[in-house]
Simulated scan of single mutants.
Amino acid sequence: MTSFPLARRSALSRRTLVGVAAVAAVVCLWSSFALSTRALEGIGMGVGDAAIVRFGVPALALSPWIPRTLRRLRGERPAVIGLVLLAGLPHFLLFAWGAHLTSAALTGLLVPGTVPLFVTILLAIRGRAALSRQRLIALAAIVAGVAASAALTGGAAGPDGIAVLLTAGLVWAAYTLGLARTQLDPLGVIAVVSLVSVVAALALAAAGALPSQLFTGSIDLPAWGAYALLQGVGTGLLSTACYVVAVKNLGSSIPAAAGALSPVLTAFVAVPLLGEHVTPGLTVALVLIVSGVAAFALAPSRPPARTPF
Rank of each mutant, 00 (worst) to 15 (best):
residue 4 F to S: 14
residue 7 A to G: 10
residue 9 R to Y: 07
residue 10 S to R: 15
residue 12 L to P: 00
residue 15 R to L: 07
residue 18 V to M: 13
residue 19 G to V: 03
residue 23 V to P: 13
residue 27 V to D: 06
residue 27 V to W: 10
residue 35 L to N: 06
residue 39 A to K: 07
residue 40 L to F: 09
residue 42 G to E: 15
residue 45 M to Q: 08
residue 46 G to Q: 01
residue 48 G to W: 01
residue 51 A to S: 14
residue 54 R to V: 05
residue 58 P to H: 03
residue 59 A to C: 10
residue 61 A to K: 00
residue 62 L to I: 03
residue 65 W to P: 00
residue 70 L to N: 01
residue 70 L to F: 13
residue 74 R to D: 08
residue 74 R to N: 06
residue 76 E to P: 12
residue 78 P to G: 04
residue 80 V to Q: 09
residue 80 V to L: 02
residue 86 L to T: 05
residue 90 P to F: 07
residue 91 H to Y: 14
residue 95 F to Y: 14
residue 96 A to K: 06
residue 100 H to S: 14
residue 105 A to W: 02
residue 106 L to H: 04
residue 115 V to N: 07
residue 116 P to N: 11
residue 116 P to A: 09
residue 123 L to I: 04
residue 129 A to H: 01
residue 132 S to G: 14
residue 134 Q to G: 14
residue 135 R to K: 15
residue 139 L to K: 05
residue 146 V to H: 06
residue 147 A to S: 12
residue 149 S to T: 12
residue 156 A to K: 13
residue 156 A to I: 06
residue 157 A to D: 14
residue 164 V to R: 04
residue 166 L to A: 01
residue 170 L to C: 14
residue 171 V to A: 09
residue 172 W to C: 00
residue 176 T to K: 10
residue 176 T to F: 03
residue 181 R to F: 00
residue 182 T to Y: 09
residue 182 T to V: 06
residue 184 L to M: 09
residue 185 D to A: 13
residue 186 P to T: 10
residue 186 P to V: 11
residue 196 V to C: 12
residue 196 V to Q: 02
residue 197 S to N: 10
residue 199 V to C: 11
residue 200 A to W: 10
residue 211 P to A: 13
residue 215 F to S: 11
residue 218 S to C: 05
residue 220 D to N: 15
residue 222 P to N: 00
residue 224 W to K: 03
residue 225 G to A: 14
residue 228 A to M: 08
residue 230 L to W: 12
residue 231 Q to Y: 11
residue 238 L to C: 03
residue 238 L to M: 13
residue 242 C to P: 05
residue 242 C to F: 15
residue 244 V to G: 02
residue 247 V to M: 13
residue 248 K to E: 15
residue 253 S to G: 07
residue 253 S to E: 15
residue 255 P to Y: 00
residue 260 A to Q: 03
residue 262 S to L: 04
residue 264 V to Q: 06
residue 264 V to T: 10
residue 264 V to P: 06
residue 265 L to I: 14
residue 265 L to D: 02
residue 266 T to F: 13
residue 269 V to D: 06
residue 271 V to I: 14
residue 271 V to R: 12
residue 274 L to V: 08
residue 276 E to L: 02
residue 280 P to E: 00
residue 282 L to S: 01
residue 283 T to N: 02
residue 287 V to D: 07
residue 299 A to D: 13
residue 300 P to D: 09
residue 302 R to I: 01
residue 307 T to S: 11
